[in-house]
């Protein structure tokens, strides 16, 4: 098949890409629950599913952050239209991660939940990141985007803070070797570096 030199993404391409994202994200999420409930996730399915959804959420967060630089670099303006979807799946995986922790690990032992959520530094950091993701997910509903106007951009630039918090959460959660979280941190810093001066945005509350 001859490949045209400059191929601009059409609306159909965007639609196909969105379908692909839906398919992959849902497939892996449903699959890990299927494996978990049917006891095919190794000796401790609880830890396995917490790790899977945690890493999944971080991967999706980084993909979300990669969309803008990728679209600029490849001159594919329409690519940014998948950003919201990736962001929402990141939130979905993060929510599943939290629910797994509360349901299967702490098993709704409320005193223990209260203790862990307030006293364990790495959990507190994860919770802060989750609250930011929650706010971003809620305010990604189109009417709210319009209503927020300029403040929407500011609020959504908090994703930069969220991703750094997640890297800290990850690093703090491991027992010995921090190579893997450091690789994630490096990727995060590269993606943030592409933002340049925009990185100051989270701290510039408009009058």
């Amino acid at each position: 098949m001859p490949v045209p030199k400059t191929r601009v993404m059409s609306d159909r391409h965007v639609l196909l890409l969105k379908l692909l994202i839906h398919g992959l994200c849902l497939f892996f999420l449903l699959r890990v629950y299927y494996l978990g409930f049917s006891d095919q996730l190794g000796g401790d399915p609880v830890k396995a599913i917490i790790h899977f959804t945690g890493i999944g959420a971080l991967n999706l967060l980084l993909l979300t952050l990669a969309v803008t630089p990728l679209s600029r670099w490849s001159h594919q303006g329409r690519l940014v239209r998948v950003r919201r979807l990736l962001g929402l799946y990141c939130f979905t995986y993060a929510a599943a991660h939290l629910v797994n922790f509360l349901t299967f690990d702490l098993q709704f032992n409320w005193p223990l939940i209260a203790e862990e959520l307030t006293e364990r530094p790495y959990i507190v950091v994860g919770l802060c990141a989750f609250i930011i993701l929650l706010l971003l997910a809620i305010t990604s509903i189109p009417p709210l985007v319009r209503a927020l106007g300029r403040r929407w951009k500011l609020l959504h630039s908090w994703i930069y803070i969220a991703v750094l918090l997640v890297c800290l959460h990850f690093t703090w959660s491991v027992k010995a070797d921090i190579t893997e979280p450091m690789i994630y941190l490096a990727i995060t810093l590269v993606l943030l570096a592409t933002r340049g001066r925009q990185l100051r945005r989270p701290f510039s509350w408009p009058g």
Partner: peptide
């Protein structure tokens, strides 16, 4: 320093949701 030791998850058999704290 990073988690509570007051309780434990007892792994016996079965998939998600089958072990007790």
């Amino acid at each position: 320093p990073r988690w509570s030791q007051a309780s434990e998850r007892r792994i016996t058999r079965g998939g998600l949701g089958s072990d007790e704290r």
